Computed example of a mutant assay.
Amino acid sequence: MCGRYYIDEETAMELQKIVLHIDKKLNPAHYSRDIVPSALAPVITNGSNEMSLELFNWGFLGYNQKGLIINARAETVSEKKSFKDCLADRRCIIPAKGFYEWDQSRNKFTFQNTKKRIMLMAGLYNADNRFVIITTKANESMEKIHDRMPLVLSDNLVHDWLFDSQETINILNKMPPLLERSSDMEQMRLEFY
């Protein structure tokens, strides 16, 4: 789940409001695109006990530096060797406008946060400046398309996710908010009388 997400210009502008000291490398026009695995993307970290915007690559290198691990399951992240240390002190937030998912028939769906202009997904980063997105069991807005979805954080969980290690497990067990789903190819429904 969550193999591609996107950032638009409005989302990039919102990032500037969230983080006071934006890295000069963050050019809103440059990030108005789809973010794919291995791409450089903005993430919000807990650097120096304050929110910091960094540019990291999406995906941990797999075993023997082969392949990419792009997601971590909320249910097992505290047990897996690749993620356990990151969960303790390298939690991050991945900002996006929304993400894409495909159903079994390969129809593409877009998911966005209905209550905010920006979506904040929980993640982890490692010492190699790479990040993964944490996924959880799908809620009602997602379950007909896929059984997993990103762990989307509400505003009141942002600070705790980044800075309060004791709240981490509680946050991992929270159900994400309902999302708005759309498709370029929505089927027409005809009513017959």
Score class of each variant (00 low, 15 high):
V132Q: 00
A12N: 07
Y125P: 05
T11Y: 03
G47V: 00
A41L: 03
Q16W: 04
D23P: 12
N129F: 08
A96T: 04
Y125V: 05
E9D: 09
I70K: 07
S105T: 13
P42W: 05
C86R: 07
E10S: 14
L87Q: 02
K84R: 15
N139I: 06
Y100H: 10
L120C: 13
N139E: 11
S105M: 11
E101F: 04
G59Y: 05
S32Y: 06
Y5M: 03
F131E: 11
K108C: 12
N46Y: 04
K25A: 15
K17G: 01
F83L: 02
G67P: 09
A41C: 08
I44F: 02
K116Y: 10
S78D: 13
W58H: 09
C92Y: 01
Y100N: 05
S38H: 13
K108L: 11
H21L: 12
K116I: 00
V132A: 01
N27R: 10
L15I: 08
F83T: 06
G123W: 00
V36P: 00
A74M: 08
M13I: 15
T76D: 10
L124F: 08
N113Q: 09
L61P: 00
T76L: 07
L53P: 06
S48T: 10
T45R: 09
G98K: 04
L40V: 11
S82G: 00
N57V: 01
K81C: 02
A41M: 04
E101T: 04
N71V: 06
D128M: 13
T135H: 05
L53G: 04
L124Y: 09
